[in-house]
Design a protein around this nucleic acid. Structure first.
Lengths: 203, 203
DNA sequence: TTAATATATGAAGCATTGTTCATCTTTTGG
DNA sequence: CCAAAAGATGAACAATGCTTCATATATTAA
C-alpha cells in the first residue's frame, strides 16, 4: 500500500495505463511490462503494489464497481419517497449513462474480467445495489409492493441486463435511445400490472 | 476441411475436448497441447484443421451460435399465427432453456469469447434472430404493431439481456423461476401498454 | 497392387511474458 | 544533517505455450 504521495500517483498511473491498454486492445494484449512502460514506471514498481497481474485486473474492476455502486446508491437515496415511475426513470438513466458515457472503458472491463474469478466482486456489487434499490422501492409514495424482493430482483435484473445486451449488440445511438424509451415504458407497464393484480395493493 | 470420416471424428473430438477444458476451467487454462491431448490426437493434427488457437475458439462459438439460432428460428416458425403472449412465452422459454440446460458450457463460452473479435459472429446471430422474431411478431393474430422494428428490438434485447444477467448473478433455481415468471408478466404488460397507446392499433 | 492423397505424429524452435532481486534514488523523521 | 524506511529500477530468469515440419501411417481410387 502506498504511504507517500508519489506512491499514490504511481498506483493511479498504473491503473490509468491499464485502462488505456485495455482500450487500445486490438492485437497487442495486456502485459505487465507494457502497463509499466505506459505508466512511466518500471515493472518492478508495478510488482511493488500488485502481487501479480491478476491482482491488478481484479483491483481495477473492484475500483470500477465501487464507483458504479456509489452512483447507484446516490440515485436511490435521492429518489427516496418519490413515485415509483420516477424511481424507475432515475435508475434506468443512471445505469445507462454509467455504461455508455465511456463505451471503450466499459467494453474493456467486460473483457478483462474473463480470466478472473470475479464472482466475489459481482456478489458484493449485487448485494449493495439490491440493498439500495430495495430501500428506494420500499419508500415509494404511490405503491406498496406485496413481494418487494421479487419486484426488486426483476427490475434490477431486467434493467441491467438490457443495458448490457444493448451494449453488446453495438446499437447505434438512434436505436439505443429508442430502446431506452421502450424500457421505461415496459417497466412502468410492469408496475401497473402489479397494481392491478392481487400481488400488490395500492395505498 | 475434413474429407474422410475419421477426420470428421477428429474435429468433433477436438471441439469436445475444448469444451471440456473450458468447463473444467479453474486454474489451468486452454492450451493447444492440452486440447489435443484430451481429444486423443497430437497437436499437429489440431493445426491441420485450425490455423491457430483463436480460430479454434472462433469456430467453437460459431457452432454454438449456429445451433442457438436454429433453435430460436424453430420456435419462431412454430409460433407463426399465434397470439402475441404465446409467442413471448415461447421465446422466453426457449432462450432461457438454451442458456441454462448446461450452465457450465454457457459460462465457458461466455468467457472464451473474451480474447476474440466476435463482433461479426454476434452481428450475424443478431440478424438471424431479428429476422425470425420480426416475422413471428408480424404474424400475431391478436396484434398489429405500428413500429414492429422497435417492439422487436425491445423484446429481444430485454429478454436476452435479462437471461444473461440472471445467469451472471448466479441466481439459485428458486429465484430464477420467480424471475422468469415476472419476465413473462412484464413483457405481456408491455404489449398491453402498446395496445392502449397510439403506437399500436389492435385489429 | 500401387501411386497419390489424406491424415496423424510430436519433438524442437521460437517468441513471449510473468516475476524476481540486487541495486540505486528519494523521502522522512529525529 | 543523517540514518532508516519507502519507493523505483530493469536486466535476467524460468516457464509456458503456440506453431512448424520432417516423417510416418492410413485411405482411396485406378
Amino acid at each position: 500500500m502506498p504511504r507517500q504521495a508519489r506512491a499514490e500517483a504511481t498506483v493511479d498511473a498504473i491503473f490509468e495505463a491499464t485502462i488505456q491498454l485495455l482500450t487500445r486492445a486490438g492485437a497487442e494484449d495486456l502485459t505487465t511490462t507494457r502497463v509499466a512502460d505506459r505508466a512511466g514506471v518500471s515493472v518492478g514498481t508495478l510488482y511493488q503494489y500488485f502481487p501479480n497481474k491478476q491482482a491488478l485486473i481484479y483491483a481495477l474492476n473492484e475500483r470500477y464497481l465501487e464507483a458504479l455502486a456509489k452512483r447507484i446508491e446516490a440515485t436511490c437515496s435521492a429518489q427516496a419517497g418519490q413515485t415509483a415511475p420516477n424511481m424507475l426513470k432515475a435508475l434506468i438513466d443512471t445505469y445507462w449513462q454509467a455504461k455508455t458515457e465511456r463505451p471503450e472503458v466499459t467494453r474493456a472491463l467486460y473483457r478483462s474480467v474473463a480470466d478472473l474469478d470475479n464472482s466475489a466482486l459481482i456478489e458484493t456489487f449485487a448485494r449493495r445495489v439490491d440493498t439500495a434499490t430495495t430501500a428506494m422501492f420500499a419508500s415509494a409514495c404511490d405503491a406498496d409492493f406485496a413481494d418487494l424482493a421479487s419486484v426488486n430482483l426483476t427490475l434490477v435484473t431486467v434493467i441491467f441486463g438490457t443495458v448490457r445486451n444493448a451494449f453488446e449488440r453495438g446499437l447505434d445511438s438512434h436505436d439505443a435511445e429508442k430502446l431506452q424509451g421502450q424500457l421505461h415504458l415496459m417497466c412502468d407497464a410492469y408496475l401497473k400490472a402489479l397494481d392491478r393484480s392481487s400481488i400488490a395493493q395500492p395505498l
